[in-house]
Measured scan of single mutants.
Amino acid sequence: MASDGVVVEIGKVTGSVGTTVEIPVYFRGVPSKGIANCDFVFRYDPNVLEIIGIDPGDIIVDPNPTKSFDTAIYPDRKIIVFLFAEDSGTGAYAITKDGVFAKIRATVKSSAPGYITFDEVGGFADNDLVEQKVSFIDGGVNVGNATPTKGATPTNTATPTK
């Protein structure tokens, strides 16, 4: 695992066909100046998982989280898009600690492993708008004895992609 920078880890949970599971997305290594904004994309298989919603985690402190935390689910493109932009203008609602960034709610549709993997990152910046190093650890849903650990090695991303 990367020793510096922010680590975004997609949790690994267990479920069975027809059940709804909650998959946490963790941030670790949050910089001392916090995270003022970030955007990134995960990939998944809508034939295996139906993403039914995404909720902000406990490290989102904006009293009205829909102003700073936004997501979009595109089953036709097989992606989930995340956007966080601190909304106070003063840094008061920045992410300042490690913990759960988001909770992905999904219904298991198939007995195949439900991988959720890193696809791309736009950027991560602290309260001074300084770009942060970030790496990703894939996860998803274990169905029966299947284990979604494909790509469990962190993917280092030093520069934003478009």
Rank of each mutant, 00 (worst) to 15 (best):
F124W: 01
D87G: 14
T117F: 05
A158R: 12
F101V: 09
T159D: 15
I54Q: 02
P56K: 08
N127P: 01
P65E: 14
I10S: 05
A85S: 03
D70L: 15
V121G: 13
T66P: 09
R43F: 05
A36M: 01
V13G: 13
K33R: 07
G34T: 06
V21E: 14
A146H: 08
V81T: 00
T161G: 08
D126L: 02
F27Y: 14
Y93R: 15
A2V: 10
G18L: 08
A94K: 04
I10G: 05
G89S: 02
T153H: 08
V130Q: 09
S135V: 11
D58Y: 06
T147Q: 08
P65G: 09
F136R: 09
K150I: 08
I51F: 08
A106C: 14
I137H: 12
G123D: 00
F69D: 02
F136W: 11
F136C: 03
V6M: 04
A92G: 12
S135D: 07
G89N: 01
I104K: 01
L129A: 02
G53H: 11
N37T: 00
S32C: 01
F84H: 02
T159Y: 14
N142Y: 12
N64H: 06
S32V: 08
V100C: 07
D119N: 05
Y74N: 00
T14V: 15
P75F: 03
K12R: 08
G18D: 08
D119Y: 14
F40I: 02
V48R: 06
S135L: 11
T20W: 07
F69C: 02
V141S: 14
K109H: 09
K33D: 02
S32K: 08
L83Q: 00
Y44N: 04
Y44G: 11
K97R: 09
G91D: 15
K109G: 08
G34Y: 04
S16I: 11
T149G: 12
V30T: 06
I59F: 14
E22C: 09
D4T: 06
I80Q: 09
N64A: 08
P113C: 09
V6T: 07
S135N: 14
N145A: 12
E22P: 12
A158L: 10
F82G: 01
I23M: 12
P46S: 06
F42S: 07
E86A: 01
G91N: 02
A125Q: 00
I23W: 15
T66Y: 15
T20S: 09
A112V: 08
E9S: 07
S68R: 14
T161H: 10
T155M: 11
V61R: 05
G139V: 03
F118S: 07
E9L: 08
S110R: 13
Q132M: 03
N156I: 09
K33T: 03
Y26H: 08
A102M: 13
S32H: 11
A94D: 03
P31C: 00
A2E: 02
D70F: 15
Y93I: 09
V134A: 08
E50A: 05
E9T: 07
N142S: 12
K133W: 13
R77K: 01
A92Q: 14
Y44F: 05
V6C: 02
T19V: 04
V100W: 04
V21K: 13
P113W: 04
V61H: 13
T159Q: 14
E22M: 15
I10M: 07
P75Q: 05
K109D: 15
K133A: 05
D76S: 04
G123T: 01
G144R: 12
P160Y: 09
D128F: 05
D62C: 15
T159H: 13
P113F: 05
A92M: 14
I116L: 05
T71L: 05
V6Q: 14
Q132Y: 01
R77N: 00
F27G: 10
K150V: 09
N47P: 08
D138V: 06
V48K: 02
Y26T: 07
T96P: 10
P154E: 12
G99Q: 14
V8I: 14
V8T: 14
G15D: 14
V17G: 04
P56Q: 07
P46W: 11
P65V: 09
I23D: 02
P148W: 03
T19S: 10
T19F: 06
K67H: 15
G144F: 09
P148V: 04
A72M: 01
S111G: 13
P154K: 12
E22Q: 11
D98E: 10
G123H: 00
K109R: 12
I10D: 13
T66H: 14
I137C: 06
I80F: 04
K150Q: 13
V8E: 06
K103S: 10
G29K: 05
D70T: 12
D126E: 01
K133L: 06
D87I: 14
T90L: 08
I73N: 07
Y26C: 11
T66F: 11
A85E: 00
D39M: 00
L83P: 01
V61I: 08
I73E: 12
T117I: 14
G122D: 00
I54S: 03
P113A: 07
S3R: 08
A106E: 02
S88V: 02
A152C: 13
F124Q: 00
D128I: 03
K133R: 11
P24F: 10
T107P: 12
V7K: 10
S135G: 07
G114Q: 05
T149L: 13
T14P: 09
G89W: 15
G29I: 14
N64T: 11
G11D: 14
G89M: 03
R43K: 10
V6Y: 01
R105Q: 10
T155C: 11
P154A: 09
P56L: 11
V30C: 03
D119H: 03
I80A: 05
C38P: 00
N145F: 15
I59K: 14
E86M: 01
G122V: 00
D58T: 08
V100G: 05
T153F: 15
I73Y: 04
G89L: 03
G123L: 00
R43H: 05
R77I: 02
G140H: 14
T159M: 10
Y26M: 15
A72Y: 00
P65M: 07
I80T: 05
A102F: 07
P154F: 10
V108W: 05
D76E: 03
T19D: 08
